[in-house]
Amino acid sequence: MKIQTIALNTFKEAIRDRILYLLFFFAAAALAFSRLLAVLAVGDRVKIIKDVGLASISIFGVLMAILIGTGLVYKEIDKKTIYTLLSKPIQRWQFLLGKFFGLVLTLFIMTLAMGLIFLVIVLLHTGKLEGRMLLAILFIFIELVLITAVSILFSCFSTPILSSIFSLSFYLIGHLSWGLETLIQKTRSGAARMALRGLSAILPDLENFNFKTEIVHGLAIDPRFYFFSALYGLVYTLFILALAVLIFKKRDFV
């Protein structure tokens, strides 16, 4: 109940923030631009529209999650609004989860809106309503949820700019970490290989949520992949949130 109250207030905060509309405007512009790009491109135009469109949703969604997420907790501490809030009978973990769910709700609505614009552009081009695209968008959203948790984790102990850099690094590392697998195979067994294995176990693998290529090209996917990816997202998010709560619980608000 208290989490819900804080979440709704966070949602109100986010939708009254200009940065959200700025990003949404650029996302919409990028989606429209994909149509232009298709005209210029050689080859399958529909695939270009879908590729660029899904990538835009993903990138602008991540920017929203990071730019708003890293400010959420920090702003409360910086503007001292957290003093009055935590003097009410709420627990610190409730506050943090409220913030998290508030931003997740905002991102859900934004992703949905961007997704609808995307579907309409595709519809105008192909004359077909391609519901399968929604599946790719759903996994983009699951990734956004994880990125939100990461942004909130960093904003529990550092400034928005640093947190944004950390979160963006997390995102980039997450999308490049699959390269480690190749590296492991090319390394001779020994200490170096062990270290690489350890690293690949710890680092996030955000490519797990990337079904864009398969879906755009109409390739068949084993349903178990969907299931494991969703489970991976859930477990990783819970882990990050637990870490954030642990840090937040011990903190002095000076």
Binding site: N9, K79, T81, S87
Partner: peptide, 29 residues
């Protein structure tokens, strides 16, 4: 904290809320 009220020094509050929304938020808590 159930029976406690606190007015901080130089209070800053959520400036995107109206006075009524602001009080409503705390009432809900």
């Amino acid at each position: 904290r159930e029976n406690l009220g606190y007015l901080p020094e130089n209070p800053y509050f959520y400036d995107y809320l109206t006075a009524a929304e602001f009080l409503d938020f705390y009432a809900q808590l």
